[in-house]
Design a protein around this nucleic acid. Structure first.
Lengths: 343, 343
DNA sequence: TTGTATCTTCAAAGCGCTTTGGATGACGAA
DNA sequence: TTCGTCATCCAAAGCGCTTTGAAGATACAA
């Protein structure tokens, strides 16, 4: 059923039917009701490609999934972020499109998506330090929003981010106040902007307390469970092991706990642990009592906000730059305690 | 840059340029090269909406993300499945579109997606027992593939699934052979088809061994970490606790381990545990030595296969029904051992 | 009665592409 | 010379929608 058929059934022109359905004022209310009834009855859905061609808008927002050859993995926060965004997209009548691209062709994938007219705007996830994609998108004139920020990229762009630095600074200070001096950082890949910021916060807190950072206590990699386990086990076996560990992800924190358990150490007593908690729906940090002391910030909520900001940008391409800095909450759970006296 | 402009630059007709770019034979090779060079130089990308309108195909495949009001969660396997599918879509020139729909409007969302001409086919994830969407899609004539199957739905349809029954039967038998008699099942929501099948496999193995199933040992809910923890803790405290636990998800298995640790029990010695492992990239079951004894089947690979099967279906809508049953591998790790003598 | 304003509807152009059905010219065969 | 055959290329129609510009109908004022 297309517009032409529907208008023939109704004995009206396509113009009138189209206007009736799209809420234009210059159509009689009786006519409008008749048209709407017929549309519902016959299950008419305007063809979105034709509509897009005619209006110049696609009502689709694009995301690019990087499929790196080195580490073929989907970030677990991906699902929650997308779910949050999708909800808002749906509310505003947008669909969401994904394209897969390998590491070498990500820029081209964004350019493609937009220049083909497939999307009205894009979301840029996981920005790296000096992220080149931001410049590319700016120059192209695509409406876009960055989930995160990119140190070293100047020029205005819309972003939403968690205050990674302050939350890790605060978490580190929390451990220092508990008497910890040897505090480890199990961080994400350090070319990722968020990881840089978290490390900066960590270092700053150490600096304020007059503690010299120990490079042996700072690790950086893709934040899997196995990685958390591996690094924690290695650190426990050091001559001068850390009494506290800061971890950039709940997933890796699970690995850390596994390593501690294997070594017969108790979290919160022998070793204190603070994790960053993205508040993933399938991986809540405990129910009533938090398992981990954690810096918490809902990535699903970030997805919702990002979606709304992007839609706003699409509506007014020349509007003021929008930025949004979310503060993570420090949730105190059972994984932290005073530093054990072992000196 | 559109086709018209490009053809004017080249001094050719739109027809010829279009044909040159799309590999039709009736165009001189020299001309084709000239056209291709100009297209690259000017960064010409055919507008996908226009192309779609003209060809009647959208080169997009649709997925629907359910956002239930009760349990607002994204299945963690979602990300990996999608990553696998996206890779194959990209190889075949397809994009992937997501629509969000709440529980009450999922059927309408699928209908919409297709009738609007937004997609050429859809993937149906997480089928329930008697899944009504399958009938809807069949009647609409959309090419689709089901990830999973639906007991109670007859009529042919394409699907790819893991042999849930046989893998859980085998895992249960493995535990029985180790001397376990009280074996618990921490399962997914039982209106989900996969959960039904897993339970069937579990029950059959018990039956074969002449063990009467105990309803107290069978739990069912959304498979979060917290759920695993909660159920395991409750079971441990029973008068006659299980000596082994079968868990439908790695995520919940983490919660189970947490509960065991809290109770001072050692996995594999005091309580044996087998989990189903979807081989998620961020949550591998250990590195060299598996953490858990597990029934393993890569959901990313399932995504890849599903994508290829769907594309095949789109190519030949009247081709034979395709089904694919993957056998899960039983990986033996450190979480299982002989039943403790406590009788 | 005529002119003007308002309401309602319509025909047709246009969005950017593919594809049908020729047109043109070159070339060799009859 | 004339015709058929290729090899190339093109004009124009059509995909299903929105939107411009206009027209018919009605009502009201002059």
């Amino acid at each position: 059923m297309n517009l032409k058929q529907l208008s023939e059934i109704l004995g009206l022109s396509q113009t009138t039917v189209s206007r009736a359905l799209n809420g234009y004022p210059e159509v009689n209310e009786d006519t409008r009701l008749r048209v709407q009834a017929a549309a519902t009855k016959h299950g008419y859905r305007p063809n979105s490609r034709a509509k897009g061609l005619a209006t110049g808008r696609s009502m689709v927002i694009g995301h690019v999934i990087p499929s790196s050859s080195q580490h073929e993995m989907v970030n677990p926060i991906f699902g929650d972020f997308v779910a949050g965004a999708a909800k808002k997209y749906a509310e505003h009548g947008y669909d969401m499109m994904f394209t897969n691209a390998d590491d070498t062709s990500i820029e081209r994938a964004y350019r493609d998506l937009f220049q083909r007219g497939a999307v009205d705007g894009v979301v840029l996830q996981g920005p790296k330090v000096n992220e080149p994609r931001i410049g590319v998108l700016s120059r192209m004139g695509v409406p876009f929003i960055v989930h995160g920020r990119a140190t070293g990229v100047d020029g205005p762009y819309d972003w939403i981010d968690v205050n990674n630095k302050s939350s890790f600074q605060r978490a580190t200070k929390f451990l220092i106040d508990l008497g910890h001096r040897r505090i480890a950082l199990i961080n994400g890949l350090e070319d990722m902007d968020f990881a840089q910021r978290r490390r900066a916060g960590y270092l700053e807190a150490l600096h304020e307390a007059g503690i010299a950072p120990d490079p042996c206590l700072m690790r950086s990699a893709e934040m899997t469970e196995v990685y958390g386990h591996h690094e924690a086990r290695a650190m426990i076996q050091m001559d001068n092991p850390p009494t506290a560990i800061l971890i950039s992800s709940m997933i890796s924190a699970i690995g850390v706990r596994r390593a501690l358990n294997e070594a017969g150490l108790k979290m919160g007593r022998d070793v204190s642990v603070i994790a960053h908690d993205d508040d993933l729906s399938y991986l809540k940090n405990g129910q009533d009592v938090p398992i981990y002391t954690a810096t918490r910030s809902s990535v699903r909520q970030a997805g919702e906000i990002a979606a709304e900001m992007l839609i706003e940008r699409i509506k007014s391409p020349d509007g003021p730059v929008q930025t949004r800095l979310l503060e993570a909450e420090l949730v105190v759970g059972g994984s932290t305690g005073p530093a054990p006296d072992r000196f």
